[in-house]
Simulated scan of single mutants.
Amino acid sequence: MQHFSARNGCHRWWNRFAPRGFTMDTRQFERGTMGNKACAIINRKSGRGSDEESFAQTLKLLEDRGVEAILLKKPADMAKAVDEAVAKGFDPIIAAGGDGTICGVTEALRGKGPRLGVLPLGTFNYFARSLGLPEDAEKALDVALNGADSTLSFGEINGKVFLNNASIGAYAAVLEVREDIYKNWGRSRLAAYWSVIVAMATLYRSLKMKITVDGKVHQMRSPVAFVAIRAYQLAEFDLEGVEEIEDGKMALLAARDSGRWMLLWRAMRIFFRGARKGQDYVLLSGKEIDIETSAARRFARDGERERMAGPYRFRLKENAIPIRVPHPEENEA
Rank of each mutant, 00 (worst) to 15 (best):
Y204F: 10
T123I: 05
K80V: 10
E243V: 08
Y232P: 04
V67Q: 00
I93C: 01
K37G: 08
K210P: 04
L119C: 04
W14Y: 12
R20D: 10
A81E: 03
Q28E: 15
G241M: 06
K208F: 12
V198C: 02
A108F: 12
G9C: 11
A172I: 10
A192Y: 12
D25T: 13
M78Q: 04
L284C: 03
D99M: 01
L283Y: 13
A108G: 06
L190P: 02
F154G: 01
E244T: 13
D149T: 11
R65C: 00
A172K: 07
V161E: 12
L263R: 05
Y182K: 14
A69K: 00
Y232Q: 11
G21H: 03
Q279W: 06
R48P: 05
I197T: 09
G21K: 02
I93P: 01
A225C: 08
I289K: 05
E176D: 11
E329A: 14
N158F: 10
R65V: 00
T26G: 10
I41K: 00
G274T: 05
D290Q: 07
T123K: 06
D25P: 09
S167I: 12
T58N: 10
M34T: 09
L121S: 04
T212R: 15
A128F: 09
A170N: 08
S195Q: 06
M1P: 08
T33K: 11
A137D: 04
H11G: 15
V217Q: 15
G9D: 14
V105T: 04
G113N: 04
I70G: 04
Q57H: 12
I211K: 02
L62P: 01
D180A: 12
T101K: 11
E329Q: 09
A137Q: 06
I197V: 14
W13D: 06
F22S: 10
R129S: 07
A87N: 08
D77P: 01
K73D: 15
A137H: 04
F124C: 13
S5W: 11
D257M: 03
F124K: 12
P328C: 01
F124R: 14
G278C: 02
R205P: 06
M78R: 07
S54Q: 11
R187T: 02
G286I: 10
R44K: 08
V213Q: 03
F272G: 07
R187M: 02
V282N: 10
F55S: 05
K277E: 14
V213L: 03
T33P: 13
A199Q: 06
V161R: 12
L253W: 15
I245P: 03
Y312Q: 06
F272T: 11
E52D: 15
R7W: 09
C10N: 15
H327T: 06
G274K: 09
R256E: 14
L141D: 02
D51Q: 11
R44F: 04
R305T: 11
N164G: 06
W265V: 10
N15C: 10
T202F: 10
G111D: 08
I42K: 03
V82L: 02
F314N: 09
S5L: 13
G100T: 00
A191E: 09
D142F: 00
P326I: 00
M220S: 14
M268F: 15
F29K: 08
E179Q: 13
M34Q: 13
A295C: 13
M262I: 14
M24Q: 09
A255L: 12
F124A: 15
D77C: 05
K139T: 00
G132Q: 05
V143T: 00
M1N: 09
